[in-house]
Design a protein around this nucleic acid. Structure first.
Lengths: 335, 335
DNA sequence: CGATTTTATCGAACCGGTTCGATCAGCATC
DNA sequence: GATGCTGATCGAACCGGTTCGATAAAATCG
């Protein structure tokens, strides 16, 4: 590998001039610039990014930290960020915390050690300690998906209240009254907002929520399955189930299938968030989806803005909340 | 941030001794070691990984390059690698080439610029140029999934011939003779092997393969859909379809549903590779799955071995080929 | 007890860049 | 013709570590 000193020697200039020639070509005379460029081309010189990062104190890498890179929701966002970053000569380092807060912390610290230019984080936790940790991160950052109370950073996400409300309203319109809700962990903002959307829409319609119809699915497949089973063995079954996310809803579908219930004939089902291959699942589930591409795009723009614009760190943190979209399927029946 | 010189000053030793104390504590006297450790603890010293990498010429990071991190197949492998790497104080950088060879190349070069200790690569291409490029990589590496002719590196993958053969045999046992095959790109080793498994098993059973029943699905959803449609509009339809991967098989299921065919009553379906939520897809598709956890484990061990064992680079490259597993569903009917 | 080996520590060079103050030539100004 | 200014270039220090040969003290040996 050719170093900057090799180039300097060949071009017969000092090392600092070579450095200058690449970082701000305008400040070098056209003649020497040309000499340096051809010398660099001759030996195939490419600046060592590691040495640059060490000297500059920052790199051109962006950290992307989520709980599950396999989730297509995060996948879409990641792809948008990658493309946008690439256009601006930045490079995305993807990491996966498996939803574990400890590992997330390790990953972030590792990334900071690599002197990343910026961080896109889908927070995995909440609470004072967590907020303190996130607030201590001095790298430009954008949080997304999960709004955490107390974190004063840019946030990009969807209107989860609306998501819950839309599906509830849809089921009410179809004549359902005995609507069950498989909730997520209430400390998560997305989960509590979706639940609030359900509860308040029911209240607005003057329909009472049966406490037995609200179960906790933890946003996971296994807990969702158990929760659904509890719903389905009740003597007075709900006529419709609303899953607060894709995992619990599909777990409910599985439970229904295993118990021999037909969807939507026996029980209707609706969910928040898409899954891969949703179109080949029978029935096609009525859902509300987030505009992942748009979310990714905003995250990317906002983060790159904070990274590249020198006085962007004076700008106050801002929230970007997008409306989700209703996607009808055939899993909800009029009664 | 405290630097090594701060620690040296407090512990009243030289910088080189501090460095030594952390890299090989045995070569420092117990007394000074203790002084250095407490000094480091006092100021919260942590070695800057960037500076270390620069000085050492290599880091403790492992590059993971695949075409689609969202694919659960790669997800399982990634998780195994991450866990194993973490146990050995290495850190996995995940990157996604979107299946594009150009981007893959950029990513790899970027990673090499970061002086990664090792590379786990699921090759996205083939051919002399590609082989030359991969062979030029001097970092310890393990290839997986796709066996590429000419690349002399460790390889970890599944027996794809067997995968194709198992499902073909299963369909033959059920009495099927008009079996269609939705193939993948034949330049890919996995695709051609699966196809070979189909063809040879048919031949062994003395059943002729109808050329109209072999279509190219490119391993993608869209091409698979078109290919399936071509199969389904034929006057003499196949009684069973074998999808060479999950995408083409599920695309075929979708096509069948849209044309009003019932699976398995009208047409049976089997596929290679699992998908998330396969258990809630109706019918549950009979498939052959790869042992992703085992694959990931072998990749991790092999790579870490090559990284940490100094004379491992003398070891010749080795192939690890695992047998896939048959997972019965209810998508194949006896006729 | 002197000669030799071992052990602990150090200084300096190095990894490959960036950055900033100094220098110097060229040019305009008075 | 002396003075002041500008733009191009340079040297040196620095980023934060590692590594290796040198050195001095301690341990081993005959």
């Amino acid at each position: 590998m050719a170093t900057i000193r090799d180039v300097a020697k060949i071009a017969e200039v000092s090392v600092s001039t070579v450095s200058l020639a690449f970082s701000s070509p305008g400040r070098v005379s056209p003649r020497t610039l040309e000499r340096i460029r051809s010398a660099a081309a001759a030996v195939g010189y490419v600046a060592d990014p590691l040495a640059q990062s060490l000297a500059r104190g920052r790199s051109r890498m962006i950290g992307f930290v989520v709980g599950n890179v396999g989730n297509p929701f995060f996948g879409d966002i990641r792809r948008e960020l990658e493309n946008y970053a690439l256009e601006h000569e930045h490079f995305v380092l993807i990491t996966d915390s498996s939803g574990k807060t400890d590992r997330e912390r390790d990953l972030i610290e590792h990334l900071i050690g690599l002197k990343i230019a910026g961080l896109a984080l889908a927070p995995s936790s909440f609470g004072p300690d967590y907020v303190k940790f996130v607030e201590s991160i001095k790298v430009p950052m954008v949080c997304f998906d999960q709004k955490v109370a107390g974190i004063e950073r840019d946030f990009v996400g969807s209107d989860n209240f609306l998501a819950g409300a839309m599906l509830t309203e849809h089921l009410l319109q179809l004549g359902h009254r005995r609507i069950a809700f498989i909730a997520g962990p209430q400390h998560m903002h997305t989960a509590s907002e979706r639940y609030r959307g359900f509860v308040e829409t029911m209240a607005s319609a003057g329909v009472e929520v049966n406490p037995n119809y609200v179960v906790d699915g933890q946003f996971t497949r296994s807990a969702g399955y158990e929760a659904a089973m509890r719903l389905l063995i009740q003597p007075e079954r709900p006529t419709a189930i609303l899953g607060a996310n894709n995992a619990v809803a599909l777990a409910a579908l599985q439970a229904m299938q295993e118990l021999g219930f037909s969807c939507p004939d026996d029980i209707s089902l609706a969910m928040i968030d898409n899954v891969q291959w949703s179109s080949v699942i029978t029935p096609r589930i009525t859902m509300v989806v987030q505009d992942t591409l748009q979310l990714g795009n905003i995250i990317a723009r906002r983060l790159l803005h904070r990274i590249t614009d020198p006085d962007a760190n004076n700008e106050p943190p801002q929230d970007f909340v997008l409306a989700p979209k209703f996607v009808p399927g055939n899993s909800c029946r009029r009664i």
